[in-house]
């Protein structure tokens, strides 16, 4: 069965993620999320959405900007924004999640604060992560040069 068929049959989906892109909110092997099938209405900033990334990948990331024709999307633990995701690509919106064995809805005040803070400070987080990656890469290069030299 495909995601689309599952949503058609049940209208919602409780499932798990693969990877680290939604850390620290959702951790692979520990947490579950519930997605409700998207309706006609447009998604909102801060919504976590399940969308199709051509050719056949399904991704769970957060909307950080709503534009006229598409959305700007970013995983909570990612540094590269994704552009060009349209309403047609989005299968559903996260309405709740189970974290460390406890269920939360996306109406939870603490979750809303987390979403707001996370999106607000995304530029700082991205800059810091890029700086750390840059330093790590240069340290590796230096070690490589010393070993070869």
């Amino acid at each position: 069965m495909k995601y689309e068929e599952y949503f058609e049959q049940y209208g919602d989906l409780t499932y798990c993620n693969v990877g680290t892109s939604m850390l620290p909110l959702i951790k692979q092997g520990r947490d579950l999320f519930t997605i409700t099938k998207k309706g006609e209405e447009r998604c909102k900033k801060y919504d976590v959405v399940l969308y199709r990334r051509p050719p056949g990948q399904y991704v769970l990331h957060r909307i950080i900007e709503v534009r006229r024709d598409d959305y700007v999307i970013l995983g909570d633990n990612c540094i590269n924004k994704e552009y060009g995701i349209t309403d047609d690509d989005i299968l559903g919106v996260m309405t709740g999640f189970m974290r460390k064995g406890k269920n939360y809805t996306c109406e939870n005040f603490g979750y809303k604060v987390y979403s707001w803070v996370w999106v607000m400070f995304a530029p700082v987080r991205i800059l810091a992560k890029r700086a750390i990656l840059w330093v790590k890469r240069h340290i590796k290069k230096m070690i490589g040069k010393k070993t070869n030299g």
Binding site: M1, Y3, T14, C16, V18, Q28, G29, L32, M98, N103
Partner: peptide, 26 residues
């Protein structure tokens, strides 16, 4: 992982990474 939401129980294999949509019973 087993979770109950609105009177329904979900069992999901969250232990292994996967390429395809499977490992879920409602």
């Amino acid at each position: 992982i087993v979770n109950e939401i609105d009177g329904q129980t979900f069992a999901v294999d969250a232990g292994s990474g996967r390429e395809r949509f499977n490992g879920l019973v409602r």
